[in-house]
Design a protein around this nucleic acid. Structure first.
Lengths: 204, 204
DNA sequence: ACTAATCTGTACCAATCGGTAAATAAATCG
DNA sequence: CGATTTATTTACCGATTGGTACAGATTAGT
């Protein structure tokens, strides 16, 4: 039986929880940015020392990529949830309201990690640039696919272009994140969402 | 007479042009971000050595502020120009088209320096945070004032809120900048602008 | 008990960071 | 001509950067 206390592998067991440590790293990267976060900052927040970090996560860059994964899987679930809404209008509404909730939640830093990192590594020469472009493109594709389904279901006017509409939604989303970093309140951002919704060629 | 070759002040004259040096610094900050730009990067691009930089510009932070001034005065003139358009619709159109032209111009880095820096220093504890918030707020105020004038001139529907509309315009503008950093083409961004224009409660 | 495997802690590395001291060079003023 | 003022050059500073060598500690397998 494998129901022993053993964790299956030889050697001294980890003295820290990898998930919790990664969460702390994510919060720090999110608040201070990749370049603004030092290894010392990280190890202090994660409660481990440097060799443990390197053994468990590789290096600063791979740790950041794992933080991006966690961000996608645990903080931007509102995108996937929104895609399951029955109408295009409600999809858009939920995506936009989702990002407002995300960036104005007092437990979170007041910006979107992907947008922030994309502007930090806007130079195509930066090693993380392509990675971030691809993550953003994946979101865009998922939303576009959903709008194409909407179009085929008669849920969008015939002249509406699903690809354009997906780009518009993501543009507003990024903009909301910048506005939040600039100190805009949740009420103000929700008002912006209402204005943006009027732009969408959707039936209601 | 003061028409001599003398430049009026004693001492050895500068061997470099301050304006040109500042322009190089701006381009570098814009492309690599504040934290991604080192003093060595700066002095190399500016063609001067370190003590000259400190004598002429103070330190890295004050140099950055001067670069921000130059950015405002020489790269975002489209905002002031747009405010002089006769109708609210054309004001909005020109602002949005202006930022698209700015961030997709092959001579420029593909993002907005203020949005980029605002996300870099989104933490209110960062020394440059407040500065950036204020610069952004100044733009918002100018646009809001213009829309209030439009409202009083009957150029906006009575239910349109000038403050909300100004925030919406700046939200889209920031979003366009992030999209550009993500690799969106000028055509795609102009399409987004057309979609955004439909959101605006404006008479046409 | 012994060996192999893995993690922890200390202590360190070369490189780079932002910033400056001090000597020299080039201009103006008297 | 000095004397004064400002800029340039070289060489350097302490601090911090991301990353690692190595010895000791803790586990599992035999």
């Amino acid at each position: 039986m494998e129901t022993k206390k053993s964790h299956g592998v030889q050697g001294r067991p980890r003295a820290f929880n990898v998930d919790i440590a990664l969460e702390q790293a994510l919060l720090l990267f999110w608040r201070k940015g990749y370049l603004g976060t030092s290894l010392t900052d990280l190890t202090e927040a994660m409660g481990i020392n440097r060799p443990s970090l390197y053994a468990a996560f590789g290096n600063k860059e791979t740790l950041f990529r794992k933080a991006l994964d966690r961000y996608r899987d645990q903080r931007t679930t509102y995108v996937r949830d929104a895609l399951e809404e029955p109408t295009a209008r409600r999809v858009i509404e939920r995506i936009m309201q989702g990002v407002v909730e995300l960036v104005t939640n007092p437990n979170n830093p007041s910006s979107c990690l992907v947008a922030q990192s994309l502007l930090t590594f806007a130079d195509p020469d930066d090693p993380l640039h392509q990675e971030l472009v691809e993550r953003r493109a994946a979101d865009e594709l998922a939303i576009r696919d959903r709008f194409e389904r909407a179009a085929s279901e008669g849920d969008l006017p015939p002249d509406a272009d699903p690809a354009d509409l997906a780009r518009f939604v993501l543009t507003v989303n990024s903009g909301l994140s910048v506005q939040a970093a600039g100190g805009a309140s949740r009420t103000e951002l929700l008002q912006v969402v209402q204005t943006a919704l009027q732009a969408c060629p959707i039936l209601d």
